[in-house]
Amino acid sequence: MRLGEIAKILDATVIYGKDLLDRDAASACGSDFMSDVLAYVKKQAVLLTGLVNPQVIRTADMTDIICVTFVRGKHPTPEIVELARARDIVLLSSDKRMYEACGLLYSNGLRG
């Protein structure tokens, strides 16, 4: 599923990567535990999380996650956005809660 479609489904704001929305996500993963993400995330994934700190971006970088979506309307600090920019990781922010955001993507065909 294209990142642009994910942003649309989640009614999300694009915080970084407006010109990268053509990229294709192969799977998604929702978690606030970075070690869970490191353990289970698949390739070319989108991460949904309610956690906002630099380690989220570093975790995404190590696992080749292509997009981080902050749920519950959370917004990253400029330092976090800069980390993502330097690694070309798309950042989205959605007002939806984790359960709903994951459910919407799943029912639209994006599997875990």
Partner: peptide, 15 residues
């Protein structure tokens, strides 16, 4: 608070 301390680090390294 930062998303670590789940006791998965060493098992992940093994995995």
């Amino acid at each position: 608070e930062l998303g670590f301390g789940a006791g998965m680090g060493l098992p992940n390294m093994k995995r």
